[in-house]
Simulated assay, not measured.
Amino acid sequence: MAHAHTHGADKAGLNQRRLGLAALLTGLFMVAEVAGGVISGSLALLADAGHMATDFAALGLAWFAARLARQPADARRTYGFDRFSVLVAFANGLALFAIAGMIVIEAGRRLAEPVAVQGPVMLGVAAAGLAVNILAFWILHGADRGNLNVRAAALHVLGDLLGSVAAIGAAVVIMTTGWTPADPLLSILVALLILRSAWLVVKDAGRILLEAAPVGVDAEAIAADLVAELDGVVDVHHVHAWALTETRPMITLHACIDAGADPVGRIAAIKDRLHARHGIDHATVEIEYGRCCDAVIHRRAAVATS
């Protein structure tokens, strides 16, 4: 277990460093993109800058969450601070919905009342943004992609990357044809990309916060597997599976075993099977003989109140 804890700490440190570097790159270019959007009059650049502002906040919070996750558990926080990263991902996803809505509203205003756009300035800033986003995406690609915060950050950066491509396309259209509606129309495309990223993050974070079963974990299938594969295990019930984070699935269950079976040995066998077959390392197993303890307790409570 010490090796696993050390390995987890190494991953958290790697995530923290790469998220911090990606946040720094995004924040610095965000300022440049806002200036370029104001000078050129490009909504696509301002929309992408708005997306980058959200990403900068997301990356900054993700960096803080990775830093906090390295803190040890204590008596009040027995699982440590890992769940904070899920809260950060959920909050960042909700913020993206608001950003996308504002972009669409402003795009509608620009379509109704077109404004002049300086294509060359827009093209230069968008091309620089593309280079920065490719670099940031490459940095995050080397982090732990099983981590929800890292995955959310990579999705944000990918959205920025595609937004820069859209801004480049709009600049080329404006420079060659003078058709300025290309700018707000492509900014709406950026907003749709933001919404897609936001939905993926909110869905995954929400599932963890609601303590739903992790993806790929079927409580009924696990119970059936343990009974079929382990000697001395007669029945498995009251199975509850959830995840502390996207990489830390947990499970509790009741296992009814044969009267002559060794309870310690059966617990060890169940935990080994959960690890090897189902990828679950944290399990709480309650051993029973013949009947469920909860059923006895409930029956006593019903008699006492009758």
Rank of each mutant, 00 (worst) to 15 (best):
L195M: 09
E113M: 09
L130Y: 05
V150T: 10
L96C: 04
R110T: 07
T176K: 08
R145S: 08
A75W: 14
R83C: 03
Q118G: 10
E106R: 04
W138L: 06
D144F: 09
M122P: 10
A128Q: 13
L148Y: 07
N133A: 14
L94K: 00
M122W: 05
E113K: 13
R151A: 09
A116N: 05
L140F: 03
D160G: 06
W199P: 01
L140C: 09
A112D: 08
A95L: 02
A136T: 11
L189V: 13
M102R: 12
G163V: 14
A107E: 08
F137K: 15
G108L: 15
F90A: 01
L155A: 03
G108T: 12
M102E: 08
S197G: 11
P114F: 00
E106N: 02
L87H: 07
L192C: 15
F84Q: 03
G142H: 08
R145G: 03
D160M: 08
A107S: 04
A131Q: 12
I103W: 01
A107T: 02
R77D: 11
V104G: 11
R83S: 06
E113H: 09
V190I: 15
G142P: 03
V117C: 03
F137C: 06
A75V: 15
R76G: 11
A153R: 10
L161E: 14
V117K: 02
F97L: 07
G163I: 12
A182W: 02
N92M: 01
A112H: 14
L96P: 09
A127T: 08
V165P: 14
I99F: 05
T180R: 00
L87E: 05
F84W: 05
T176Q: 12
H156W: 11
V190F: 13
I134A: 11
F84K: 01
L200N: 06
A73L: 13
A73Q: 11
I139F: 06
M102C: 05
R151T: 07
V88I: 01
L189I: 11
G101I: 03
A170P: 00
A98T: 01
A89Q: 00
F137P: 10
A143R: 09
